[in-house]
Computed example of a mutant assay.
Amino acid sequence: MDVTEDAVRDICTDAVLERGERYLAEGRIRDIHRVDTTVTAVVSGSRQYDVRVDLAIDGFAPWCDCPYDGPGACKHVVAVLLRCVDDQPPDEGNRLDAALAGAHADELCAFLRDELATDADLRDRFLARIGESTRQSVDEFRTSIDRRFEETNPEYHVVFEPIDFTQWFDLANEYREQGRYASAATVYRALAESLDDNMERVDGAYDHFSSAFSRALDGYVGCVATAERDADAITDAVAFLDKRATSGTPFLAEHFEKAAVELRKKADEPSYK
Rank of each mutant, 00 (worst) to 15 (best):
L122C: 08
A101S: 12
D87R: 04
Y68C: 04
D121I: 15
R83K: 12
P71F: 15
D119W: 07
L82F: 09
L81I: 04
Q88L: 07
C74D: 00
D124N: 15
V80T: 06
L127E: 15
L96K: 12
D114K: 13
A99D: 14
D119S: 07
D87M: 02
A79Y: 06
G93Y: 01
G70H: 03
T118F: 05
D86R: 08
A117R: 10
H76W: 07
C109M: 09
T118H: 09
C109S: 13
P90W: 02
G102Y: 01
D91F: 04
D69Y: 02
P90R: 05
D97N: 12
D106L: 12
D114L: 12
D114N: 10
L81E: 07
G72R: 11
V85D: 13
D86T: 02
R129W: 03
H76I: 12
E107S: 13
D69A: 09
C84H: 11
A103R: 08
L108F: 01
A79R: 05
A98Y: 01
T118M: 06
A101H: 06
T118D: 12
D121N: 11
D69H: 08
C74Y: 01
D87Y: 00
R83I: 08
Q88H: 03
I130E: 03
F111I: 05
R129P: 01
A110F: 04
Q88I: 02
I130V: 14
F111L: 15
L112F: 09
E115H: 10
D97V: 06
G131Y: 01
D86N: 11
V77H: 01
G93T: 00
A105W: 10
V85Q: 12
D86H: 09
E107L: 10
A101L: 07
A105H: 11
L96I: 14
C74V: 04
H104T: 00
E92L: 13
A128D: 04
T118Y: 06
V80G: 01
H76R: 04
A103G: 12
A79H: 07
L100K: 05
A73E: 00
L100A: 09
G102D: 13
L108V: 00
D119F: 07
D69W: 02
P90D: 02
L112R: 09
E115W: 04
C84M: 07
A79K: 05
L82V: 06
D97Y: 08
A79D: 13
F111G: 10
D91S: 03
C109T: 03
L100R: 09
L112P: 05
T118Q: 09
P89M: 08
G93P: 02
R123H: 15
E107N: 10
L127A: 10
D124L: 15
E115R: 11
E115K: 09
E92W: 01
